[in-house]
Simulated assay, not measured.
Amino acid sequence: MGETGSVVAAEDPRFAEFFPPDAKLERIAEGFIWAEGPVWFDEIGELRFSDIPNNRIMAWTQEGGLRVFRQPAQSTNGHTRDRDGAMISCEHTGRCVSRTRMDGTYEVLATHWQGKRLNSPNDVVVKSDGSIWFTDPPYGIISDHEGIRAESEIGSNNVYRIDPDTGVVELVADDFDRPNGLAFSVDESVLYVADSGRARGHGFGTDDSRPHHVRALTVVDGRRLGTSQVVCEVDRVPDGLRVDTEDLLWVSAADGVHCFTPAGERLGRVRVPEVVANLTFGGPDRSRLFICGTSSIYAIDTTRCGAQWP
């Protein structure tokens, strides 16, 4: 895909130092309709990700290349891992959050809040106490492209927490337009949440009057969200995001991956030739950035290190 200089656009000189001199953006897999939700399995050297409209979860390794991990897959979107290494997934068609253990055991963790069915869980993170936090916009129910068209039973798009002891689904934020990607700061004192309200849905254009930013919400007592502020705005919309071990924020966007400080200063971006939906750090030392473009998976080496539990 070209030399580092052709894909790394630095607005601050520090950003150029985040990549080895010989780093290249590589297309490592292609042939998807809407690639999403990358998650890295270090112990087996495997990247898994969703191809939502094709209703499948894919798996890729450097040695073995690409394979189908699961199909059908309930139009799965975002993934992360819990403290036992199991894959936690957001399912559009199932309108649920699920767990797949390393031995293949599958279970549904959440389907409803206060007796009402979830919209279409989108992205998910796990906190160090084992609690599972996820966003629930309507993208899987506004059309049949990424799920099954349906009316929202809840009537709003919220952020939720699954209690690790009781399994109860708790509402933690209800003032988002369309909450999307999310990640904790390294010390878990802040939860970053992207609001992609500007995008009305796949194929439905944009509405400039609606949010296209990332917010930082303080975490109170480890289980509630307090004060909130906008960290950064992203052209078109932000989607998936990750934090590295120095609390820099890496945000997917229409024109690539943008990197921000916690104060909202944009340091630069990685240019990608397709709209970017999500990203994750992986590789043996979590320094390789894997990027979900629309129809392809890209990778580039960095000098950064992804947070252990993004």
Rank of each mutant, 00 (worst) to 15 (best):
L109K: 02
H112W: 02
H112F: 06
H112K: 12
W113R: 02
Q114M: 13
G115T: 08
K116M: 13
K116T: 10
K116F: 11
K116R: 15
R117M: 15
L118W: 02
N119A: 13
S120A: 14
P121M: 02
V124Y: 03
V126D: 07
V126W: 04
K127P: 04
S128C: 12
D129R: 08
G130T: 05
S131F: 03
I132N: 07
I132F: 02
W133P: 02
F134M: 07
F134N: 09
D136Y: 02
P137R: 01
P137D: 01
P138R: 12
P138C: 13
P138V: 13
Y139K: 03
G140M: 01
I141W: 03
S143I: 09
S143C: 13
D144R: 05
E146M: 06
E146N: 06
G147R: 00
G147Q: 00
I148V: 15
R149S: 14
A150Q: 09
S152D: 10
S152Q: 07
S152F: 07
E153Y: 04
E153A: 15
E153T: 06
I154A: 07
I154Q: 11
G155I: 00
N158W: 02
V159I: 11
Y160G: 12
R161H: 04
R161K: 04
I162P: 00
I162N: 04
I162R: 01
D163F: 06
D163W: 03
P164F: 10
P164K: 08
D165Y: 12
T166Y: 09
G167H: 10
G167R: 10
G167P: 11
G167I: 12
L171Y: 01
V172W: 08
V172Y: 08
A173M: 13
D174Y: 07
F176V: 05
R178E: 11
P179Q: 05
N180K: 00
G181N: 08
G181S: 06
L182I: 06
L182F: 03
A183E: 10
A183C: 14
F184Q: 02
S185H: 03
D187Y: 03
D187R: 04
D187P: 05
S189Q: 11
L191G: 09
Y192S: 09
Y192F: 10
Y192C: 08
Y192H: 05
V193H: 01
A194N: 08
D195W: 01
S196C: 08
S196N: 12
R198E: 11
A199Q: 12
R200S: 15
